[in-house]
Amino acid sequence: MLRQIRFLPSENIHGRLLPWVIAVMVFLAGLAMLIALGLQMTARTWHQGLAQSLTVQVINADKAARDREVAAALAELHKTPGIAAAAEETSDQVVALLEPWLGKGNVGPDLPIPALIDVKLADGPPVDVTALGAALAKVAPSARVDAHERWLADLLVLMRIVQWIGGVIVGLVGLATVAIIIFATRAGLATHRETVEIVHMMGAKDSTIAGAFQWRFLWVGVKGAIIGLAALAAGIGVVHVINQRLEGALLPQLLPPPEVLASLLVLPVVAGLLTMLTARFAVMRALADMN
């Protein structure tokens, strides 16, 4: 497989557009990979962060009454088994949570804001959220327990679906790339059929002839993938700038973590190997039709 005899013309044997087609395919596959892997990591982070916590809102509009209810709720929470910690969010923290939605400086002292209690759950048996809500209602009637799990479960299902769609897109892009490479290889074979026939008649093995094609196509695949990856990197850069302008709060984190970005570096290798092996397979199949 490694021995190579040069008998093909030095100019391209695959058409000028093939590297660009592969670049587009790698760009699309990379984008789909980014979305799928990014969502997977986000879902994991959310799940780890929220499954071990819940939030209690005290929505009494009267500040004095609200403070009394918060104190009573905290006392109830502290004596509830399965709760590791409970603390009221400061007003600055609550304002910071609202500002992305209402705009900076728009959350004034006259705006009735509920008090929020952040509750950390201890490891062990899960807390009975319904019973906790009933207990809190006795000491703080305006308290509402938000266990996150309901909306988190729906969100996780949605994310999994998007992940699957991303995976299907990567698969389809891969199949389309294989089909395009097969067409390009056949076109190259047709153009250089006379050359291939002569070398074949001189006793070159099929693997030797296929080898001459496969190394050319390997380089085409790598070159196309690098172009596609560069375009994707540029796109990521643009998203990064936009993300910074949005102060990274209104939308979820648009940029995936570095380890996901690093995984994209596998694309040129995969594209090169896919291109090389597809070309080899196509040439071997075509040669099998010769005597």
Partner: peptide, 19 residues
């Protein structure tokens, strides 16, 4: 292929590789 490597052929139209 092994047999072909033991057969030398001179074609009427030469069939040289132009490149």
């Amino acid at each position: 292929p092994r047999l072909r490597r033991n057969i030398g052929v001179v074609f009427q139209d030469y069939r040289l590789l132009d490149h």
